[in-house]
Design a protein around this nucleic acid. Structure first.
Lengths: 304, 304
DNA sequence: ATGGCGTTATAAGATTTGCTTATGCCCCTA
DNA sequence: TAGGGGCATAAGCAAATCTTATAACGCCAT
């Protein structure tokens, strides 16, 4: 499958085309910014590589042989394709200078990223950020595989092969429907009570679920699912309808609690919290554009 | 007009395609017969040259980035055209191994070369000789310019920049029509008598004319043209019709004299003679096939 | 006939490139 | 925890490619 050696090199084919057009090896050398003996030696080597005499040389200059004309004809094809490749890679470089591909976990994508992106659009209009949503585990995988430049996740698992930077803490709160018995009771709900009560949970792999599992696991307990939903919004609607309580990010329920659709119920002791983190690949340097995005999001999250 | 540096090199583009197909830099290196660090360094250099990240590397192997896929796509074009170029040059090498392009002056082409080519066809059927006819001056120019491999000319002029080898001597003889007064006279025609008699001549540049001009010029005389014809056959027909005498190669008139269409009239003293020579370029080595042609023609002309 | 100006090719030395082997580090699996 | 897969770095060596200096050749004007 690989090309059989020896392979002609592009610079020598290009030089041959120049010599053909200009009529002498010396003029071709000048056009290519190399000395005349260097050009002479290169062309002799190209003839040896191809096993064909390409130029008829005299003190009056150099002209293509019939075989040389054939080779220059094919070379024009090759060199044209190389120019197209270089044009394509220049476009990729321009895109990479301004394009950042980001993946965020659901909570971040829905409640934090919009504000971040608005700030970015204001501060740095040249940057174009493409945002994907996935659960935290999937976000980490996308980053690890190099399919996105930056990731934002909740929690600290699956950071192998990745660099990370903490941005802000996010507290999880217990919410119930307004008519739920817990909505009007005084006092806090213990971990044992919470574990004994079926809840609406996110799917396995979501940061929200992981943090809850860790919080209960610290005392040998585990959450009980009445239903698993893949969307925080869906969970909020389910809770509001009285199905069961849920533990969700304060970021996610802030507006619903303020507007009376949900009631926040205090948890005993220190509630579950997690750190929202930025992730990037440990094996590839962050692009300048992605660094600018990270720096500005860090600035936004530090200001709160 | 030349490609702007730095230019990707074909071997690295080929290696990238192999790594993409095989899934690891190490497997790509094996396929290309180089060590793994050499492959790794080459691909890093290619990324620097193009200014684009092409591979996502991990301990599980290497996969193309989206930009890498674009580059490999364009590379397949480039590498495909390079393969076409290599196929074309292989065909040219095969042709050059068996094809010899020869130019001969009129006399040689009409009276010597046919026998030579018949012998060549018998002795070496793989050789293909293409024969052009031109006058001696034009033959020398074709050789000097590299447009033919070998030339055969009469006389010794215009050998600058050429190698030559004497093959045989050719005598020029004076011929007249059977009813011409000189046909029945006894004795030789002097140079003065010849110079004073209008003749049928070849065009300027033909070997036949040059030799005659030299022979008369040696005693301060020059030939007088009643007409100039570009073909020895045409000259023979003109002489036979009684227009005027002509001085032609013995090779050319041998059969006409034997069959009585023309009468050879002796010239006083040593008649004009010339050497039939082979010519080839001084600036390019003779190809093996052309060497075989020359060797066999030399053998044929030495046997006479 | 000679000198000047164009060309190509060779020689020698310096620099750059590209390879090798050895080895370190990382990740995954048994 | 050990072994086997991967990629990257370091050091040393050989080959390639460049430079300047110069030789040789052909053409043209004087």
């Amino acid at each position: 499958m690989p090309l059989v050696q020896p392979v002609p090199d592009l610079i020598s084919l290009d030089l041959l085309a120049s010599v053909a057009a200009l009529g002498s090896i010396r003029q071709g050398a000048l056009a290519h910014g190399i000395s005349q003996p260097a050009a002479s030696t290169r062309l002799r080597a190209l003839e040896a590589t191809l096993g064909v005499e390409l130029l008829h040389r005299s003190s009056g200059g150099a002209q293509l042989t019939p075989a040389g004309r054939v080779v220059v004809g094919w070379s024009e094809q090759v060199l044209g394709d190389v120019r197209s490749l270089l044009t394509a890679t220049a476009a990729l470089r321009r895109e990479r200078r301004t394009q950042v591909h980001v993946a965020a976990s659901m909570t971040v994508a829905e409640y934090l990223a919009p504000e971040w992106l608005v700030r970015l659009a204001t501060l740095d209009p040249d940057l174009h950020v493409a945002l994907d949503m996935a659960n935290s585990e999937q976000v980490a995988e996308l980053v690890r595989e190099g399919r996105v430049d930056l990731g934002f996740v909740e929690g600290t698992s699956r950071l192998v092969g990745l660099h990370s930077q903490a941005l802000l803490d996010d507290e999880l709160v217990l919410v119930v429907a307004p008519h739920h018995p817990w909505a009007s009771r005084r006092g806090e709900i213990s971990r044992a009570q919470l574990a004994a009560t079926p809840q609406v949970l996110r799917e396995v792999g979501s940061g929200t679920r992981e943090v809850l599992e860790e919080w209960l696991g610290a005392v040998g307990l585990a959450p009980t699912a009445v239903v698993e939903l893949g969307s925080t919004t869906a969970i909020k609607r389910a809770v509001e309808s009285g199905v069961a309580p849920a533990v969700l990010s304060r970021l996610a329920v802030h507006a619903d609690v303020r507007e009376g659709r949900l009631v926040a119920v205090p948890l005993a002791g220190r509630g579950p919290t997690r750190t929202i983190r930025a992730l990037w690949s440990a094996s590839s340097p962050l692009s300048p554009a992605a660094k600018r995005v990270l720096a500005q999001i860090h600035e936004v999250t530090t200001e709160r």
